[in-house]
């Protein structure tokens, strides 16, 4: 129980987000109305994805310097879990866009950037799947993973800020800052982000442990 305290925090924070996210007061905004509450659920998906993919690229770098196969397991499982959150972020964003911007998908720098990022990480898994030899696969995948994370930063953080975008927080759109200043929303939003990141790390830890067991059994037989 002692080393599982962060799992309890993850559970409590996300449960708190579900309750407070629906019941606490939110600022009234035109077009958004109650859908502003999506901020508590859609945005933490991306925060979790960024964090978990950072774990992935960190272990890829670690693999390149130490050549420990366990780092490769962590990197590949983290990329996997990160993509789960990325997919959830894309789908929830699409639903939100349908009822605020009027379309499931708009040709927007942020949205297209997110789609391209998903494709780049899909290529990572294809690359892994196409190499049989363990050490070789780990090394090539690690190099590609660094490239993928740099592209992620470019497509999600840099390019949307350089051009106009419908998505809040980019270009000339001050949307996100306005809600961000609202202290009513902060008390839900920050725990939501922490809770979902921790939940993602929990899922990731299960994936890693499972993969390590699988490898041990494989090596023994």
């Amino acid at each position: 129980m002692k080393k599982n305290w962060w799992k309890i925090i993850a559970f409590v924070f996300v449960l708190y987000t579900i309750i407070a996210g629906f019941l606490f007061k939110v600022p009234a905004q035109p077009i958004l109305h109650e859908s502003i509450r999506n901020l508590y659920f859609h945005v933490p998906m991306w925060f979790s994805m960024m964090t978990i993919l950072f774990v992935s690229v960190w272990h890829s770098i670690k693999y390149l310097s130490k050549s420990n196969i366990e780092s490769d397991i962590v990197a590949s499982r983290a990329a996997h879990t990160g993509m789960l959150f990325g997919a959830l972020g894309l789908v929830t964003g699409s639903i939100w866009a349908r009822y605020t911007w009027g379309a499931w998908w708009v040709a927007d720098t942020k949205l297209n950037g997110a789609a391209i990022t998903t494709l780049i990480y899909t290529a990572y898994f294809i690359l892994r799947g196409s190499i049989d030899e363990e050490q070789k696969r780990a090394r090539i995948a690690a190099v590609y993973n660094i490239f993928a994370y740099v592209m992620l930063i470019v497509f999600l953080m840099i390019l949307p800020r350089m051009s106009d975008s419908l998505h809040p927080g980019n270009g000339g759109n001050p949307g996100f800052n306005k809600y961000d200043l609202d202290s009513n929303m902060r008390v839900v939003f920050y725990p939501a982000v922490i809770g979902w990141i921790l939940l993602g790390v929990w899922i990731l830890s299960l994936q890693i442990r499972f993969e390590k067991i699988k490898r041990k059994i494989y090596l023994r037989d």
Partner: peptide
């Protein structure tokens, strides 16, 4: 009836 939704979501998460 928003409490019903909150309860349902809490149960799902649980």
């Amino acid at each position: 009836k928003i409490y019903v939704v909150v309860t349902v979501l809490s149960v799902i998460f649980l």
